[in-house]
Design a binder for these strands. Structure first.
Lengths: 240, 240
DNA sequence: TAGTGGTCTAGACCACGTG
DNA sequence: ACGTGGTCTAGACCACTAC
C-alpha cells in the first residue's frame, strides 16, 4: 500500500478509497468490491473498513445496499432534486423543474467569477443561461459560469438536447462529481434583462442565489447565479 | 429496562437515552455517564453503546470530548452563531449580531402562525420583535411568535436584559432545546413598518426568512420572520 | 444457496485531560 | 495514575438480494 501513514488507520483507508474515486478507478454507478474483500486487501479488520466507508456514505459519495453491495453514487434526477434544488412552490409539492436553454457563450472571468472559481481575472470561461419553470410558471433565470480550462471540450449542443441535468453532464463527460454547494442569497431589484426573461416588471424584488458547486477535492466546479421570482415559489432549506 | 423491543438494539438504547434527554433526566451542560457505565447499565457491548451515541453526537445533541466525557449540548453563543445564524457580511468575517429589543405583545395566531406552530387559528401567542445589527449596521427585524401555552410564564423583562440568546432562554427557562430549523426565503418589497426599522426606503427589496425551529421531538418551538436588508449582508448556507 | 451489507460482542490498546 | 473517549481486532450471526 502506498498510503500516507498519518492519523487513524481508517482515515488512511478512506483516503485510499477517495483516491480511487477521484481518479476514476471507481466510477459512478459502479459496484465497489465487498467490504470483506476490501478489508483483506487493505489488511484491516472489517470494522475498520466499515468505518472508513461510513463517512463516504454519509457524504453520499457511496450508497450502501444491503444484500447487493456498495455503489458509487450518481447524479440521478431524484438525488439532484432532493439535495441541490431548493426552490419549491409556496403551496404544493416539490417537483422537477423544466429547463429551457437560452444561450451558450464564451466569456472572460470577472472579479467575482475569478474569486469564486479560483481562477485568474480575465481567464476564459463558458457562460450558459437557462430558464427554469415549475408547474408551467417561469421561476428563475440561471447564469452558469464554468472554467474553460476544466471544461475545454464543452460545446453548445450538449445543452440543447439533454434529458439529464447539467450535473449529470459534468459527471459523465468530465468525471466531475459535485458533492457540496455553498449558496449566498440576496434580495435585489430585477434588472431589465432578467425581468424580461421572468416576465415580470423591471425593479420587482427577486431572490438572487449565488451558488458555488464543489467537487470531492473541494475545488470549485461551477458558479451559478440564479435570479428567482419568489411571488409564487420560495427557497427552502432544512438546517442541522 | 422498559425499552420497546423493535429494530436494532442500538436504536432501543438510543431511544432510552433520548427519553432521558427529553424529560430532563440529563440536562444541557451535564456530563452523562461514561460509555462503559452505560454499556453495563443497558447490558450491551461498548461498541453497540457507542453506535447509539453516534447519532446523537451527529445531531449535535451530545458532545464527545476525549479524556473528559460526553456532555449534553448547550445553546452557547458559538454554537448558535455557527449553526443557526446565517447572515454574514458580503465581504468580511461572520460575527455576533447585536440584538435590540423592540416590543413584546400578546396576540392571537394567524392562519400562517397556526399552521407553522401546529396550533389553532386564534389561539393566544406571544409576539416579540427584535432588531439585529452587525458591525454597527442594522441588518434585520425579527418577528418571533411563540405558542402561549408552551411559554406561559414568559414575560417582557426576560427580553430586555439578556446576555444570552433567546434559544438559551428556551433551554434554561423552559427545558426546550432547538435541534433543527426549517427556513423558507423570499424576496419582497419592504413595507413601511419594517423599512422604518431598517432605515431604508419603503419598497426596497428585502430578504424575508420564515424560520420554524424544532425541538428534539420534532415539535415546532418558534416561528421567526426575519426581514433582512441584503445591501451589505447576505444569507449563507453550505449544503450537503 | 451463496454473497452482500447490518448488527453485535468482548475484549485490547491508544490519546487525551485531570488531579 | 486514573478515567475518559477513540481506534482496532477477529470473529459470530442476522437480513436482504439474487440466482
Amino acid at each position: 500500500m502506498s498510503t500516507q501513514e498519518s492519523g487513524p488507520l481508517y482515515r488512511s483507508v478512506q483516503r485510499a478509497l477517495m483516491e480511487r474515486l477521484a481518479n476514476g478507478d471507481l466510477k459512478p454507478g459502479q459496484l465497489i468490491p465487498s467490504e470483506r474483500q476490501l478489508a483483506t486487501e487493505f489488511n484491516v479488520s472489517i470494522g475498520t473498513l466499515r468505518k472508513a466507508i461510513d463517512d463516504l456514505v454519509e457524504q453520499r459519495i457511496l450508497i450502501r445496499q444491503q444484500g447487493k453491495g456498495t455503489y458509487v453514487a450518481t447524479h440521478d434526477r431524484e438525488r439532484l432534486l432532493f439535495y441541490f434544488f431548493h426552490i419549491v412552490p409556496q403551496s404544493g409539492l416539490k417537483s422537477y423543474p423544466l429547463v429551457e436553454f437560452v444561450f451558450f457563450h464564451k466569456a472572460i472571468a470577472s472579479e467575482e467569477v475569478a474569486m469564486r472559481l479560483k481562477i485568474a481575472v480575465g481567464a476564459p470561461v463558458f457562460h450558459i443561461r437557462n430558464r427554469m419553470s415549475l408547474d408551467d410558471q417561469i421561476v428563475s433565470v440561471d447564469d452558469i459560469v464554468l472554467d474553460h480550462e476544466r471544461f475545454a471540450s464543452l460545446s453548445s449542443p450538449q445543452f440543447r438536447e439533454r434529458p439529464n441535468t447539467i450535473y449529470n453532464l459534468y459527471q459523465e463527460s468530465f468525471g466531475i462529481t459535485v458533492v457540496k454547494t455553498e449558496e449566498r442569497l440576496r434580495a435585489e431589484a430585477a434588472h431589465e434583462e432578467h425581468a424580461k426573461q421572468l416576465k415580470i416588471k423591471t425593479g420587482t424584488p427577486v431572490l438572487v442565489i449565488r451558488r458555488v458547486a464543489l467537487d470531492m477535492r473541494g475545488e470549485p466546479v461551477e458558479l451559478r447565479i440564479s435570479t428567482v421570482n419568489t411571488s409564487r415559489h420560495e427557497y427552502f432549506a432544512e438546517l442541522l
